[in-house]
Design a protein around this nucleic acid. Sequence first.
DNA 1: GCATCGAGCGTACGATCGTACGCATGAGCG
DNA 2: CGCTCATGCGTACGATCGTACGCTCGATGC
Lengths: 199, 199
Amino acid sequence: MSAAHPPPAGRPDPAPSSRRRRHDPDRRDRIVATCLDVLAEHGVAGTSHRRVAAAADVPLGSMTYHFDGMDDLLGAAFGRFAEEAAAAFERRMTAARDLDEARAAVVALITEDVFATRRDLVLTHELYTLAAREPAFRTLTNAWMRRSRRALERHFDPTTTRLVDAFVEGITIHRALDTEPADDADVREAVARLTAGAA
Amino acid sequence: MSAAHPPPAGRPDPAPSSRRRRHDPDRRDRIVATCLDVLAEHGVAGTSHRRVAAAADVPLGSMTYHFDGMDDLLGAAFGRFAEEAAAAFERRMTAARDLDEARAAVVALITEDVFATRRDLVLTHELYTLAAREPAFRTLTNAWMRRSRRALERHFDPTTTRLVDAFVEGITIHRALDTEPADDADVREAVARLTAGAA
DNA sequence: GCATCGAGCGTACGATCGTACGCATGAGCG
DNA sequence: CGCTCATGCGTACGATCGTACGCTCGATGC
């Protein structure tokens, strides 16, 4: 923490300067991105304005300037996270060309670690926990889920979609908790069963 | 919160007094129980020694006396929670007499709110989140899961057990997040499929 | 070129945190 | 009946928190 900013020196590109260097959209983004790192490492409980500011190498004052308090910051950070996760999910699912490929995609999402880096796992649960307790954050998780489901519904009927979605969620938890998770083969088998006749 | 406790009046039995009233095992228990309430309401992030002490109506000093810091307190509280949850789960599952009743029990666990009061949902996720980030708490969740699974394995083979367990977990999340969860009938159907030929 | 104005940040304040330290107090023994 | 000692608690300290306030300073209009 000691010698923070680049400092007086730095400023990579004071160059362009053509028009407003003032309202730097970079700042806000960097804060949001860094906030996710801090959240992944210290959890909501350990995330403070100061810690994020230090990690993002921005002055503390920027925090209250760019965000209306802690909840606003958390909302922005988790919003971005959910956005990216949903996008990745969509990409994966829309790439599938038929039912079998869709099933394979679901299995891949679980077994490969696309969705399962420890970081993402932690962030996901941190968000879920927040949403479970505070309804305000549920609009965020709901939007995320809705989007994921829409992607699944390109291949499965709505009912099957909900079931598969839940199953994926559950397996993901078990992975996050290091509980000896089900074998890949068993997961494949289970997905097959859940989606039997489900176009 | 205002007028909580039974209060100054109470002390049901200062009576016995025959031997040591000093080491009051009640104190510690009440702190642990109250801590769970605080956790459910404010989350790990909002749980402090002071808040718990106030809610449990014990002096602040008791906190550091009975527990070696915050983590110890959290461990004790979540330990009790997991213990109770596992016991309830076991009771439910061991009551089933055959495969069909076992399936019904699993469905009941999901559809009825035995396991799904908002409070328990919140506490569960709060614990999972902690465990996802801090390995120390994973021994706790692992023990819980292992116990739950052993109960399931009275009726299903190990592989099926893991799959069903994951499915239950996933549906539970969806309920916690108020995402429109799957219909009861669909859940029943899904469990049937997952457990087809799984004695 | 200068006056003006708002974007952005440095700093300081009050609240609250976890924890250590030392005293009260009542049980147990002679 | 009094001494002793550990249990249990009141309190105070240093660190850290979120946030408000006011200054700096570059961009813009004349």
